[in-house]
Design a protein around this nucleic acid. Sequence first.
DNA 1: GTTGAAAAAGATTCAAA
DNA 2: TTTGAATCTTTTTCAAC
Lengths: 160, 160
Amino acid sequence: MNEDYMVNQNVQLDELDEKILQLITKNARIPFLEVARACGVSGAAIHQRVQRLLNMEVITGSEFIVNPQKLGYNTCAYMGIYLDKQSNDKEVVAKLDEIPEIVECHHTTGQYAIFIKIQAKTNKHLKKVIDTDLQNIDGIARTETFISLEMVFKRQVPVR
Amino acid sequence: MNEDYMVNQNVQLDELDEKILQLITKNARIPFLEVARACGVSGAAIHQRVQRLLNMEVITGSEFIVNPQKLGYNTCAYMGIYLDKQSNDKEVVAKLDEIPEIVECHHTTGQYAIFIKIQAKTNKHLKKVIDTDLQNIDGIARTETFISLEMVFKRQVPVR
DNA sequence: GTTGAAAAAGATTCAAA
DNA sequence: TTTGAATCTTTTTCAAC
């Protein structure tokens, strides 16, 4: 009982919550007092609302966003992974987790069992990740790579 | 001259920059004075370094991270898009940009011309995005969808 | 749940090194 | 580039509504 898949994770948010989310998801450093002024409520109210949104896990934290290219990461790729029939998904994922160039990992349905996003410095670096790091993982049968020539846009889920 | 593709965007960072990045990319709300204490320098130094990292676009901003599931977005999918030969990539991308459920969009090489990430509330919602919103865009020949059953991990590019 | 007020902490500026 | 000190702003707490 009470497994993840049984829980409706949806949460009731009012307009103030949504306004707050719209502001802080675009700029985590915005002063709560500025949010307060924009919303016409007190700073204390924003403080409490944000705390509540964190407690409810509607927001899971904050981050400064790095520009991969400025750190020399110029190659981005997606990869679909086929697993051997007898392989253990969890073990494969644990191994993938150890490869820092893999920045995202999903269990998927359809042709692939696992789908990942890779950030590498160069095409040569990507080749090393694929031919060495991934090749060393037991259970991977085959992979298909899609190289991103350019990320055109990226954003978060719409708040309302 | 001086086109995007000619510019080496790589930037020289020292250990202090890296330490700062490691802290602020995990928590955008961390007080700079706390970063200062962790790094053994003054608050003013951190303030200036962060400003410099922003000016250099090593960091492009900050955000509170929303948990899509708590907003009712329970279906995540990736989609490869094949375009008609005579179609205009830019126009297609502009249309995709207008669909809020598409949260990421890349130009790709290989079998697909465009690769996108979709966040929908339900499978039915995803079907509506695919069958209605995407179907209405001229130039799209065919699509292939990979549904994510579970995002196992997500992180930013390693700093150093 | 929201408020204003108070106290504590942080951000920002700047002259000097 | 870094620093400490000064100033200004924000964060956080809390009693009262």
